[in-house]
Design a binder for these strands. Structure first.
Lengths: 141, 141
DNA sequence: GTTGACGTTGACGTCAACGTAAACTTGGGG
DNA sequence: CCCCAAGTTTACGTTGACGTCAACGTCAAC
């Protein structure tokens, strides 16, 4: 219940076992072994989730490694904690920047969408007036 | 003023000329030529910006190609417009999903941040009470 | 007229992130 | 007891996204 086979994880996250083993090869996951078969803990599962989410945001595996280490830290000494805190704030800033960009994209998409709709409406009018090939030009941007 | 050299674009966006030419190789950019040197229009510049922004979100160049085509379409016929509209909405949905994920990451980061801060505060207390190596265990997650 | 800075075209190299194939082991069901 | 599905290791292959290098054109400046 707190542990998973490799196959379970592949099914849950839609990745191949090769991928998961690859993450182990480069030290992103370190499952236990029962005999020689891998046994993944809930923490491993969480790590995997973080990695894959990172990928969806264009993070490299190395970048994800950084983030994972931040969640891990086994609370070291004061200096370590403060470095960690600083990195957390950096990460938050960069995430916020991404969020702003994402919102910009969303606005552009919506603009394109309404432009598209008005174009359709224009075509409808054109069709009613049986005008020939009228070039509804609306080139902003 | 409405046109740019390759070097200008590299400087503006912090990419190499190789990168820009690569985008041309795979048909993402199609600058004019003055003689044999490339001349980029404002539209080319916008495309490049879209591509690079896409990358920051983990889009492949092929995925960016899709998006670019949506901004381009020279407003075809009705059917084309409606397909475009549908794709725009899909894109918007996927962007919204990403936004939700991003917000989730932000929340987790902030949680980690406060956890980190309380850990620091705990260390401060421990230091005052001159207690030895007390293992401030706070393992949630 | 040569020196830079900038441009070009191939062509090959590299690096991350896996895919794929082969050959082997292992635990439980018929 | 034997099979087989799911696991393993080892090792080479592939793909995307460029980097790097050589060899050369062009043009303004000194």
């Amino acid at each position: 219940m707190g542990s998973f086979s490799i196959r379970e994880l592949t099914r849950e996250f839609g990745v191949t076992s090769r991928t998961i083993r690859h993450y182990e090869d480069i030290g992103l996951l370190t499952p236990e072994r029962r005999g020689q078969t891998r046994v993944y803990s809930a923490a491993d599962r969480t790590r995997l989730k973080l990695i894959l989410r990172g990928k969806r945001f264009g993070l490299s595996l190395e970048e994800s490694r950084q983030i994972i280490q931040m969640y891990d830290p086994a609370a070291g000494n004061r200096a370590q904690l403060e470095r960690l805190l600083a990195r957390l704030r950096e990460q938050r800033e960069s995430l916020l920047a991404r969020r702003r960009e994402l919102d910009a994209m969303l606005e552009e998409l919506e603009a394109a969408e309404t432009a598209c709709q008005t174009a359709l409406a224009g075509q409808a009018r054109a069709a009613r007036s049986v005008a020939g090939t009228r070039n509804t030009r609306r080139n902003n941007r």
